[in-house]
Design a protein around this nucleic acid. Structure first.
Lengths: 94, 94
DNA sequence: TTATTTTGGTTTATAATATAAACTACTTTA
DNA sequence: TAAAGTAGTTTATATTATAAACCAAAATAA
């Protein structure tokens, strides 16, 4: 009856990150940090997990002289998110 | 933008328990165990947490000679579940 | 009758996860 | 040039979830 939820997405911060990226497709580290109100450390860790899962791609560059980290959602990430939403609906009685 | 999710409900097993109880209002330990495919230990622990939060009431009795644990959702539990669903919708873009 | 298994759980130990604190490497401003 | 700020990473700790071990009674089998 109840499908197992993707543990990678069933985390508040990672879900928030993915939620942002599903809409925006890409976003900067600092922007995500602001929107999610996460600490840098926590954000860094969770982004790496999502990257390792292939749910997003992390690009390092510079904006002027300052380092800049850009996150892009992948096809796999989008699909995983959509699947998670479907699975969750059964838990929420939606 | 994104409201903090109730950590008590943002747990796969506890959410499954509450999902069942929102529909059924009450259910036996053994029934919940079957439906959620949880181990007894895990179920016992999570039920106790939900009880301590006042989200459900646990009644101990006997069915014939065998012990029987019945779980009833409370008003507080129902409301918390509904609030959680609302909060989660923002994460899921629903 | 007395083992043995099954039922219905709880308690406790361990594994996994999330979060926070500390640190690095620079840049900007005073 | 010293202090403060930006943009992160790494590592340690706290929290949480899960599994393993256990308990008491009942049912079943020998």
């Amino acid at each position: 009856m109840l499908k197992k939820l993707d543990p990678l997405l069933h985390s508040e911060l990672r879900l928030a990150i993915m939620s942002l990226l599903v809409s925006l497709h890409k976003a900067e580290f600092t922007y995500i940090k602001e929107k999610t109100e996460a600490t840098s450390g926590n954000l860094s860790v969770q982004l790496t997990k999502l990257e390792e899962a292939g749910y997003l791609e992390i690009k390092k560059g510079f904006k002027g002289k300052m380092p800049q980290t850009t996150c892009l959602i992948t096809k796999k990430g989008t699909e995983a998110f959509e699947q998670y939403v479907e699975d969750l609906k059964n838990y929420l009685n939606l």
